[in-house]
């Protein structure tokens, strides 16, 4: 099913939301992604992903206080839901499993 699988970028966004804890809104997420991945995160792309994640029920959002920096518009804060947490854990588990299957010497010689 669509909802169970996470894309690579989706996973990154989801992780960033979790990492930012109480300050996870679109612009902050973009900035954090850029900082950690070193690649440019376009606002439009991030928005679309956030929208998709919310549709899948992996994140939830609420509107915060209006601030002057946003021209009087409110921020939309995102938080990971339990389904999101489960998806993240599952993805981590898959990776951990795969990592553990690689013999110690196998990657050293590449």
């Amino acid at each position: 099913m669509k909802g169970t699988n996470l894309g690579e970028f989706e996973e990154l966004v989801l992780l960033t939301i979790a990492a930012l804890v109480n300050d996870a809104y679109s612009v902050a997420i973009c900035d954090e992604l850029e900082k950690n991945t070193g690649r440019a995160a376009k606002l439009g792309v991030v928005h679309a992903v956030l929208n998709r994640l919310e549709e899948k029920g992996l994140v939830k959002s609420k509107l915060g206080e209006a601030t002057n920096t946003r021209g009087g518009k409110r921020k939309r804060y995102y938080a990971v839901t339990s389904a999101g947490k489960a998806a993240l854990l599952k993805a981590k588990e898959v990776r951990d499993n795969l990592w553990s299957m690689i013999p110690g010497m196998a990657l050293k010689n590449i």
């Binding site: 679109s26 612009v27 606002l43 928005h47 929208n51 509107l63 920096t69 946003r70 021209g71 518009k73 409110r74 921020k75 939309r76």
Partner: peptide, 15 residues
Amino acid sequence: ELLEDLQGDLYEYFQ
């Protein structure tokens, strides 16, 4: 329902 969010983001970037 999306408008306010988008406007805010774009404004922040704009500044």
